[in-house]
């Protein structure tokens, strides 16, 4: 007896949506109208669709970054810090280096990716050299990167023309144009995502990562260098986060500068995406669509029905909890049903 995975996930999402409806209803909002306006603003207009697609791709990379590390059993919770360092580095390159686009943009990407990977490498080195807990180091590095970047954009690198803390805008050569309404970085990131999925599913190292994620001891006994792979997984995860930060500068629909609060929600969303997909990079795809629709429709919903856009943050958290709970409880539930059937059949025999 087995319940199909898709069925439990669908049931879980429906449950989350119903809980959200009850919450909206208890606040005196029309829940159907609010959900309808989320869908309307995220999917029915061309601008809305472009917005959703842009968001979706950013979420996809955020989720892959988290899943790359978590799937290999490396607790990298530092996507936020790595993203910020990546964004900051590529912005600096974009402001101060004067080169044609063809050279400048790859340079910015390399710089951002390297900065993200380096920021993750600090944590990996702490674990490897001193046996420190990488879970806590990455978390603390988030706060340190956050304050460091805030300091940079509010004092030494502040744009004199801006009222708020913000860096200067990168030179025009450092911006990739949009194709129609969609950022051209979208295609680049999708290519990276496909490469990442291929890497984890098909390559030897990706296989080792997955085995390490299931059982690190088994992987080591089975002959793979878990220490080295741990380092690699952290670096790759940091590199993806750094790439995400760079794309927030290079993308045509983005702000092309570091502002305070840049990428704040993407990091946490990435972690949740990875977790809800069972740390499986391929599985991130579906949930990223769901998250993107909810998030890009949020401001529309606020305009139409007055529900604060933070409602979607709560709804996403509820969805994650619901999916996880359904997944783990379905196994227990089946066991209970089987036990109940057995006792029944024993009673009949008597």
């Amino acid at each position: 007896m087995k319940i199909r995975k898709e069925v439990t996930v669908a049931l879980a999402i429906v449950t989350a949506i119903v809980i959200g409806m009850i919450m909206l209803f208890s606040q005196g909002y029309s829940s159907m109208e609010s959900y309808a306006s989320i869908l309307k603003y995220s999917l029915s207009t061309a601008i809305g669709r472009a917005n959703t697609i842009n968001r979706f791709v950013f979420l996809l990379i955020a989720g892959s970054s988290a899943a790359m590390a978590l799937g290999a059993g490396a607790s990298n919770l530092g996507q936020f810090g790595q993203l910020l360092m990546g964004a900051m580095t590529s912005t600096l390159i974009g402001i101060y280096v004067n080169l044609p686009s063809v050279v400048l943009i790859p340079l910015m990407i390399i710089g951002g990716v390297a900065a993200g990977a380096l920021w993750a490498a600090i944590a990996a080195a702490g674990r490897k050299l001193f046996g420190m807990n990488e879970f806590i180091i990455t978390l603390m590095l988030n706060f340190i990167a956050d304050y460091f970047v805030r300091y940079l954009i509010s004092t030494p690198l502040k744009d004199p023309g801006s009222q708020w803390p913000a860096s200067r805008v990168v030179s025009e050569n450092g911006i990739l144009p949009a194709i129609g309404l969609i950022d051209s970085v979208v295609f680049l990131m999708i290519a990276v995502y496909i490469a990442a999925v291929y890497f984890v599913r098909k390559s030897r190292m990706g296989y080792e990562f997955r085995v390490m994620g299931y059982n690190s001891l088994f992987a080591r006994v089975g002959g793979c260098d878990t220490n080295k792979n741990f380092f690699r997984a952290m670096l790759l995860s940091g590199a993806l986060a750094g790439l995400l930060g760079t794309m927030m500068i290079v993308g045509a629909t983005q702000q092309h500068r570091v502002i305070s609060g840049l990428g704040e929600n993407f990091a946490n969303d990435g972690l949740m995406l990875s977790i809800v997909a069972g740390n499986n990079i391929g599985g991130v795809f579906v949930y990223a669509i769901l998250f993107a629709i909810l998030q890009s429709g949020a401001t529309g919903m606020q305009l139409d029905t007055g529900v604060p856009s933070e409602f979607t943050t709560m709804l996403i958290a509820i969805t994650v909890l619901s999916v996880v709970a359904f997944r783990s409880y379905s196994g227990i539930f089946i066991d209970k049903v089987i036990a109940w059937k057995k006792t029944k059949s024993l009673e009949v025999e008597k």
Partner: peptide
């Protein structure tokens, strides 16, 4: 979630923290 639904502690913690961050801002407004 952790004791009755048997979800992972890490997952539950992260999701609850996110939920709380959203909820406090939501109700503040």
């Amino acid at each position: 979630f952790v004791l009755k639904m048997k979800t992972g502690e890490f997952i539950t913690g992260i999701a609850i923290n996110t939920f709380v961050a959203g909820a406090t801002t939501y109700y503040l407004r």
